[in-house]
Every structure is written in structure tokens, then in C-alpha cells.
Design a binder for these strands. Sequence first.
DNA 1: CGATAAATTGAACTCTATCAATAGGTGTGG
DNA 2: CCACACCTATTGATAGAGTTCAATTTATCG
Lengths: 253, 253
Amino acid sequence: MPSALLLKLSQCRELSAEDQALLAQAVAHRRELAAKEDIIRQGEPPADVHLVLDGFACRYKLMAGGKRAIIAYLVPGDFCDLHVGLLGKMDHSICTLQPSVIADLSRAQVESLMRRPAIAHALRWSTLVDEATLREWLANMGRRSADRQMAHLFCELRVRLAAVGAGARDGFRLPMTQEELADTLGITTVHVNRVLQQLRDAELIRLAGRQLTIPDVAKLESFAEFTPDYLHMRGETASGRPQHAGALQAGAA
Amino acid sequence: MPSALLLKLSQCRELSAEDQALLAQAVAHRRELAAKEDIIRQGEPPADVHLVLDGFACRYKLMAGGKRAIIAYLVPGDFCDLHVGLLGKMDHSICTLQPSVIADLSRAQVESLMRRPAIAHALRWSTLVDEATLREWLANMGRRSADRQMAHLFCELRVRLAAVGAGARDGFRLPMTQEELADTLGITTVHVNRVLQQLRDAELIRLAGRQLTIPDVAKLESFAEFTPDYLHMRGETASGRPQHAGALQAGAA
DNA sequence: CGATAAATTGAACTCTATCAATAGGTGTGG
DNA sequence: CCACACCTATTGATAGAGTTCAATTTATCG
């Protein structure tokens, strides 16, 4: 089975055997982390570049009054801080949500990868997808009700996990607690609990322990107003079902 | 007076006279747009790279049901789509909020700029700042009340506009309507109106027509829990006032 | 098995949305 | 210059989504 990183980058373009070997070699240095361990912390100057090989992590910001905001999830194949070396210090932290395997790449290793045009291209692509995802989250949070937000998050994770071979087509293992979901959507844990119940009652999801099952993917995606275009993938992974109607009226011109 | 772009990039590093000349030359081709005109639209394949030289614009997404989410503001010196050429098509639109001057750069021009190491570095830095701003907005939206969100937005715009010489230290001209503010913060126009009144009543802002005045910058920043670190600027521009207390407890480790 | 974290429930409360109406501004054409 | 149309801002009343506080049950882990 190819690594999650290769599966992810191949969403952008096929890589030569030589490039694949270089990538495999670059991530050879692995490190195992337990759940809820910080990979890098807010305020630190970024040294190595980190990559999630296996497991699940999240970016988060600590705010005034002890509030926490989770601003991204990192699944296998995702870089934590590919470019932050340019900035003086981290403006957020990253921590694992379950036991995970992390690769540490030195600045020099990254630079040598960047000298391979196809790899450089694929890595830049992955950065843009991260940014597009951030934009989608912002729109999701601003203009959807809590139940649709939650559904949207599940739809996204389903696609991303399946794309790297870390989840099935109809579900996956949810590693985060309801408190972490709350910090992701900007709501309370109590409300997370109630929203999850609504989604279950509506038969949109099934949740047994930590295992999430989506009985009807198209139905959940329609409810969530989920369109996978922002993930900029190709092929089957991105469901490609009939879009929800009425997506583009009310122009701002 | 140096251009907004040069002022902005000099937040990253000083550029040689030669680099400055190249940049000035690259943005020589200008175009004037009225207010509420799209610069580039969702779904379009990105061709040229666009840059705001003067005026004010915003990124937005149109969503199911005609909802709109504004996910970024672009002030003079900001690129609209520096890297999106890598992606097949735009996943959002950009439109002006007031009459603006836009530069169109061909792909070739951008590439030739990127061959200058100092310019390439500064442009990459500006991309990272855009991304950091997106993260801050997400945290802002998720974990702050509407009045603090609004105050935070004003604090950010004050710093960004002042940094490129497009605003005073104690205020600036707000070009957007209350409806656009609503689409930015994810609330209704009615609520925007009431929140603005609260801020006025609390003497945190003054609003005469479209002119926003901040009588006490430190007070507004403290109320908004605004810390300008995510803008990764240097020097006086970024207020640098006493931070609000209690910013970093409640670790997630 | 006991201790601790996570999930669940209830009731009261607050913030924000919704609906609807009014007032103020601005630009255009007659 | 006025009148009209239209967009933007403002206000009030009511409904609803999400919060808060507090208690209880259910997992999880050493």
C-alpha cells in the first residue's frame, strides 16, 4: 500500500518512481506520539518541518480567557508547517488527537525536495488546498447552522480520509472528543451533543462509540451543502454526486 | 510616496532599488474598476494575477440558498490570486467594495519576479500572512461574541491600512455596507447595526458617515482581544500595546 | 475495580435571527 | 430643482438557536 503522502500528492499529479523514492526516503525518520501531545507550540520558532504519516492531529489557537479554537484537522499525508519557516514564530499550535506517527524533516531536506519540479509543484498544490479548506471552513462557520456545519465537517473528513486510504467510503473513525468538535465549530459541548443526536435521529449519520457511519453519503452531502470542489481532487474520491440546487444565485454585482 | 505594495513587502524585508524598480514596472498596467465589480469569479480558471493598487476589495463565496460569506478583505498592496494558477479554477470570487485600481500581471511577469530571490521571499511571506489572517478570522468567528468580532475586524483593518499608508493611526474610511459586514462576521444586518451602536455607546468607536474613528486604540484592542502577531509585521505599525491578560492558560496537552 | 474523562440530560437564560415597518441618503431623469 | 426609485440604515416586537449551570450516566484506563 502506498503511503498516505504519495496518495495525497498523486491527487495533484503522478510522480515518477524516482520522486516517489525521494519522498519515501525523506520521511524515513519517524516519531511516535501519544494522543494529545503537542507537535509544535504557539510562539515557538519553527525549526523542522513536520508531517503526519499516520494518526490525526489538529491546529489550534489559545485565546484570551482560556478559549480554544481548532482551525484545521491534519490527516495522514498532511504537512503541519511546510512554509512557516519563513515566519518568525508559530501563531498557533498543533497537537495530536490520537496516537500518531510524525515525520520530522530538516530544512535542508525540504529544500532538496523542492528542487524536484514535480514534487515542488505537488507541495505547493497541497498548500493551496490547505488554504482553500480554511476558506471553506470560514464560510461554513459563518453561514451555516450548527447541524449543517457538523455534517459538512463529516463530509470533508470522509473525502480526505478516503483519499489517503485512512477511511472507508461510508464512514471512518472519529478520533476527537465532543469538546474538540465544539472548539472546531465554535459552539458548546452541550450543543455538540444535541446536534449529534439530531443528525442521528435524522438518519444522516450513525455513531457507535467512535465509529462514524454515513448510511447515505449523497443525502448527508446534500444536507450539508457540501461540494468537494474546494479540495481540488480528481476522480471518484470526491463523491461527484448531483449538486444541491440553487447554489449560485444572488450575485453581488 | 512609495506604493502600497512596496510598503507592504518592506514589512518583510528591505528590497534593493533594482527590485523595487522591477516591482514598479510589473504593476504599471493598471485598470480602474467601479465599486461592486467582480475582479475574478468563482469557477473561472485563473489567468492573470491581480493586485489591488488602490481601493478596497473582498473575497467571497456564494453558497446554497443565496447566502454569501466574505472571507477576506483586500487592501492596497494585497494580491488577489498570486498562486491560484496552480489550481484548476477559482473556488471563490473577488469584488471591489469601492472604486479601485487593479494591476493585472501575466503569468510570465510573476515568474520573472519570482526569479528575484528577495522578491520571491517577500511574496511567499505575504502569502503566509494571508493564510495566518484566515486562521485568525476563523478563531475570531468561532470563539468571540459579535461585538468583539466586529472590534477585532476594525483593529486589524486599522493596522493593515496604516501599514500601507491608506489610513490614519486613529481611524480610516470604512467602505463596506452593513450588509457586507454581516456577511463577513456571519450575522444579520440588523444585528450588525445593533452591535455598531453598542460599540459607539461604549465609546470604543466613532462612526460619522463612513468615517471610522478610534478614540482609544489600546482600549479597543483590549476589548477585541486583538494581538497583531498574526500579521507578522515589525515596528510601530503593530500597536505593540500591553497585551490583554490571561492569554495562554488552559493548555490542551 | 476504582478513578477520571467523556457523554448525556434538564431547565433557565441570552444572544442573535426573523419579520416588518420606517427613515435617511443618493442618484437619475424629467 | 424636484420627484421618484432604490439602496442603506435604523427601530420594535417576537421567535429561535445556542449557552450556561448543574447534575447524572456512561466510557475508558491504569
